[in-house]
Design a protein around this nucleic acid. Structure first.
Lengths: 262, 262
DNA sequence: GAAGCAAAAATTGTATACGGTTTTTGCTTG
DNA sequence: CAAGCAAAAACCGTATACAATTTTTGCTTC
């Protein structure tokens, strides 16, 4: 609950380029998402971030089961720390844990999807207005870098990375607004959005997103809070409408998926 | 073979006889708060609810340290389940866990307090509008019962219970609105509000709260969403203004408190 | 051949033991 | 008598072992 933590957490993402192409959690794209877990620094938090990153980048699909032994084997940790990490992720809404059944990646329903984007449409415009009043030049250059990296990821056809960067853009704004309560809510909502997009995204062109982010950046440069509010709201409504929430998409379980692939 | 069986038997009897005052977690006032934890039903969840209840009713004050062994001793559980419970509570923002330092009841700062009530003033009016559109007669009678119980607690001069019931009123409304995302947010905000009130509450008369709740009930009875929205917003602004967030109140630690008491 | 049931395998829930870090305490020394 | 330091106690982090539950599998039977 420290109100000063949000901004510094986002700021630290600027140094993310110093590492090799390896998959260390500290160098991952999703480092900016790290404010959501109330875990002390340690292996449990690292596993948390790695798994969260995998979910956000759609390398782990909704419904996938995560056995404690399996995860421990992959990351070279005991079951104790893995349990900690899984419980933390469950609390963030990314996993579901059932008694004696283990953890699996959450599968938001159509109703959940509506609720998440409705909440985002309420909260994020307010946060954007706050951010416009507080934004600094350093923040603006960082946001530009995010958009640039997102473009690059799209050029590389790396949809998972592009999506993660798009989310990071919104989270960075929450950090700029210096409101830790809103920031925590938005982090939770955006990670859930990632799951929802994995299940219900149907629009083929993602370019519109970049346009919206550019427009937001302009409003921030002019420190126009009302414009930022309006742009954010329309952006989120646009995102919401880009989902296919009428019919059921991708109801296949991991089993059916495996059958289709092989 | 008999050693472990005997020990568990002792544990269960201690658990049963230690709480003869009718304080089972399932029957406690804070039962309505139980949607916030992503723990499977079991002893960990029970300990979670008991501790949450104690915090909400101000029997545990901000800053109090909770040793794992101590909590385990009290509730007759091993450290494993206690750790689970403490981590879950930390995720809800009620506890703070520092590496090798253990858990302690969170102490929201003045800035946190502003943020929490600002967020409530944004979200809860929206939820009240939704609730007005969906409320049933059964819901109305239940809300009336809440207000009645709150009055009774005030008459008994049981401030902790009154405060918990007041929070339950708001949480019930979130449930009526049938919006799980908002409901989770509001539960988290209200439990945090409980900590904030423990630290910064200065207004001697709590009667105003009951009036506000009565007025809200009227709006719900008439299914007037706009009125519910406006009343909820003014109610929360009123609560916010009832806090002393200018100067520091109650900065004493548990040590100073013990000295003052003894 | 399908349905029902029992045994076995796999997986999670929990407790306990050991190692590392922090905090406290008591002594020494200026 | 205060300050610094070292030893010890307390506490948390992690791994491992055992118990309980679930899921799967193979057999029997209609």
């Amino acid at each position: 609950m420290s109100s000063s933590a949000a901004k510094s957490a986002v700021r630290s993402t600027a140094k993310a380029s110093g590492q090799t192409g390896g998959q260390t959690a500290g160098s991952s794209i999703a480092e900016g998402f790290n404010g959501a877990f109330s875990l002390p620094p340690g292996p449990a938090l690292e596993i948390c971030l790695r798994l969260q990153n995998a979910i956000i980048e759609h390398r782990l699909q909704p419904g996938t089961r995560l056995s404690e032994d399996e995860v421990g084997e992959i990351y070279g940790a005991g079951r104790t720390v893995v349990r900690s990490a899984l419980q933390a992720l469950a609390h963030s809404g990314l996993l579901e844990i059932k008694r004696n059944r283990g953890a699996s990646v959450a599968k938001p329903t159509v109703g959940d999807a509506h609720e998440v984007f409705e909440a985002r449409a309420l909260i994020e415009p307010e946060v954007a207005r706050r951010a416009a009043a507080r934004i600094t030049d350093a923040d603006l250059t960082r946001l530009k870098a995010h958009i640039e990296a997102e473009h690059q990821a799209l050029a590389d056809n790396d949809m998972g990375k592009a999506l993660a960067l798009s989310g990071l853009f919104h989270i960075d704004i929450a950090g700029i607004a210096e409101h830790s309560v809103y920031a925590a809510m938005i982090q939770s909502l955006i990670t859930k959005s990632s799951l929802i997009i994995a299940l219900y995204w149907v629009r083929p062109d993602t370019a519109c997103e970049s346009h919206a982010h550019h427009a937001l950046l302009d409003a921030f440069e002019q420190k126009d809070g009302d414009a930022a509010h309006a742009l954010m709201r329309s952006h989120l409504i646009d995102l919401h409408s880009g989902l296919n929430l009428k019919t059921r998409v991708r109801t296949e379980t991991s089993l059916a998926e495996a059958l289709a692939g092989g």
